[in-house]
Each structure stands twice: as structure tokens, then as C-alpha cells.
Amino acid sequence: MISHSETHTHARVEFVALLAAFALFLSTVEYMIPKPVPFMRIGLANLPLLIGLGILNNREYILLALLKVLGQGLITGTIFSYIALFSLGGTISSAFVMFVMFRYGKHWISLLGISMAGAMASNITQLQLSRAILFGDAARLIAPPFLIVGLATSIILGIFAQRFVDHSAWYKRTLEAKK
């Protein structure tokens, strides 16, 4: 006989897998969009991380972030390249900033603000990595468009995530099931 806690744990694993699959789908869509720099992305695959902030526990959120990086690397064929390092650095810094801001500031900061902060953390990390690994001081030349695109897309993703969280019956049911 399966206990309630085992059923709950199984449902939580399935939920993380669902969000990870959504991140992989968005990563695949994003991969088809032309990029001026190989590691430059618009951040679509961060949407599940934003949505997961309110419904995942600490371990689940970290697992989702790692599955996102691993999945992106597998989908793009860059798992053993410097691009995977950029993805890992950007995702970890972004996920950390968004997680901390949500946990300690969710009453004062919307998902829009959290999305923008996460994008800037990711972009700054990736710019530092590009300076150290690829471009040296010339990385400053790609910084303005990189940061502008990151800010613009984070605003769109933040607005979408906030509207989803505010209006989705599925999200509300998932949030209630967590309690």
C-alpha cells in the first residue's frame, strides 16, 4: 500500500518533471531564434523557474534549474562546451537571485521585478565569463545590447509570469496542493 507521503512525493517529482519539460520545450523554441553571439539567449526557458518560485521547495527549485541547464545543453549539443558553462553560470546566478528575492521580498516585489533582477544577474555573470574566457576587455562592446535585450525580454517574461500566477486556476490548485 502506498502511503500519503509517498503519493505526495511522487506528485512533486512529476511536477518538477513537468516544469523541466516545459523549460526544455521553451529552450527548443529559443534555439531556433537566430543569435548574434552563441551564448546570447532571450531567456524563454526561465519562465518555468519564475512560475516555480511560489510552488517549489528549495530542493525542487534547484533541481529544476539544473535540469534546465542539462536539457539546454543536450538540445543544443553544447553540453561539453563553453556555452554550457555560460548557461550554468547564468542559470545559477539568475535562479539564486530570483529565489532569494521571492523568498524574502515577494510582498514588495512582483514577478516582473524578480524577472528583471534574475536576467541582470544572468547577463552580468555571462558577461564576466565572456570576458574571462572569450573576449577579454572587448566584452564591454557586447555588454550594452546584451543587457538591453536581457532587460526587455525579462520584462515580457515577468509580465507573463505575473499574469499567469494571478489568473491560472491550475497554478492556484497547485499552490493549494502544496499546503
Rank of each mutant, 00 (worst) to 15 (best):
M1V: 14
S3G: 13
S5G: 02
T7G: 02
H8M: 06
H10E: 10
H10C: 11
R12W: 11
R12P: 01
A17I: 07
L19G: 00
F22R: 01
A23P: 07
F25S: 15
T28H: 08
M32G: 11
K35P: 07
P36Y: 04
P38H: 09
M40T: 09
A45S: 15
L47C: 03
P48Q: 05
P48G: 11
L50S: 03
L50H: 03
G52K: 05
G54S: 11
I55T: 07
L56E: 10
N58E: 12
N58M: 07
E60P: 05
Y61T: 14
Y61M: 08
L63H: 00
L66T: 10
V69L: 08
V69Q: 15
G71T: 10
G71E: 14
Q72S: 06
Q72C: 09
I75K: 02
G77N: 05
T78S: 13
T78H: 03
I79V: 08
I79W: 03
I83Y: 07
L85G: 04
G89T: 08
G89D: 13
G90Y: 00
T91N: 00
T91I: 00
T91C: 00
S94N: 08
A95D: 04
A95G: 09
A95T: 05
F96L: 13
V100G: 06
V100K: 08
M101L: 10
R103T: 08
G105A: 13
H107K: 10
W108T: 09
W108P: 00
I109M: 12
S110E: 03
S115K: 01
S115M: 14
A119D: 13
S122E: 02
I124F: 05
T125S: 02
Q128N: 04
L129S: 10
L129P: 09
I133Q: 13
L134Y: 12
A138M: 02
A139R: 03
R140C: 05
R140W: 11
P144F: 13
P144T: 07
L151M: 11
L151T: 02
I155D: 10
I155C: 10
I156P: 12
A161V: 01
Q162Y: 14
R163D: 01
V165P: 10
H167D: 03
S168V: 02
S168D: 13
W170C: 04
K179T: 05
